[in-house]
């Protein structure tokens, strides 16, 4: 990972002005994310995880410091379709089929009809939803809907995938399964992934890099480069290496809390 970073934040600040006074959602955030990394953001509610992801996506604009995405400003990067964004809720349009939902960004970005069909087919395969293109969202389970929303974010082939607690609303078993699939998808597509989570095991299982954050002001307290191999069966979660990383994440979260 010595090439130029995909995402580079330097001394990033973001203060929301509210009626109750300023809220320091991000303060002095320095972070580099290299190509092909899987980076998890973990920390208690309100520590700025969502805000940081939104800054990368140019949905929020920092009040201080600099950030580049693929060497550009986040706004320019968005115009170049640098990223796909997956929200906590699948947010599929009920009036469109699964295929229709995946076509939504493709229509907006002006892909030809033939290419749209081709891409829908490919991404449905990628998220293991072949044959469900003609179904409507309500005909699918919550986990399948979330997979469809990932397919939608993948369809235009952005090389960054930003995911804000995408599996937060799903039960443990479905979540394990989706985590496994996400790793497989990451291995196949070599995308750079930014992933927000509340769950320590999820963060450790998925990531090559774990960013531990703490609130008031939102900041990074620890960045852990995972020693785990990229190839990860589910039972890697019982190995000493895994438990050691998990322990360090927990320590980092506790240290952040000591400020309160």
């Amino acid at each position: 990972m010595t090439q130029t970073p995909v995402i580079q934040a330097q001394n990033l600040d973001l203060t929301f002005q509210t009626n109750d006074g300023p809220i320091h959602a991000l303060k002095g955030v320095d972070l580099e994310i290299g190509k092909g990394e899987f980076v998890s953001f973990i920390g208690p509610s309100g520590c700025g995880k969502t805000t940081f992801l939104r800054v990368i996506a140019a949905l929020e604009h920092p009040t201080g410091g600099t950030i580049t995405v693929n060497g550009m400003t986040p706004d320019e990067a968005r115009q170049k379709r640098a990223y796909g964004y997956v929200f906590q809720a699948a947010g599929l349009y009920p009036w469109r089929t699964i295929a229709g939902n995946i076509k939504l960004p493709l229509e907006i970005m002006g892909f030809s009809r033939a290419e749209q069909e081709e891409r829908v087919k490919n991404v449905l395969q990628l998220v293991d939803l072949e044959g469900f293109g003609g179904k409507f969202p309500w005909q699918l389970s919550g986990g399948m809907q979330q997979r469809a929303s990932i397919a939608r974010a993948l369809a235009f082939d952005a090389d960054i995938l930003l995911m804000d607690e995408p599996f937060g609303a799903l039960d443990e078993i479905v979540r394990d399964h989706l985590n496994e699939q996400l790793l497989a998808l990451w291995a196949r597509t070599e995308k750079t992934i930014g992933f927000v989570t509340h769950s320590i095991p999820e963060a450790v299982y998925l990531s090559t890099k774990i960013v531990v954050m703490s609130p008031r002001p939102g900041r990074i307290t620890d960045v852990i480069d995972s020693p785990l191999p990229r190839e990860r069966p589910l039972d890697i979660r019982d190995t000493p290496e895994f438990l050691e990383v998990a322990h360090r994440v927990r320590e980092g979260l506790r240290a952040g809390h000591a400020y309160d």
């Binding site: 949905l59 968005r78 947010g91 907006i108």
Partner: peptide, 10 residues
């Protein structure tokens, strides 16, 4: 969220 999704597509 739905409006933000549209923004991410520019």
């Amino acid at each position: 969220m739905q409006l933000d999704l549209m923004r991410t597509y520019n």
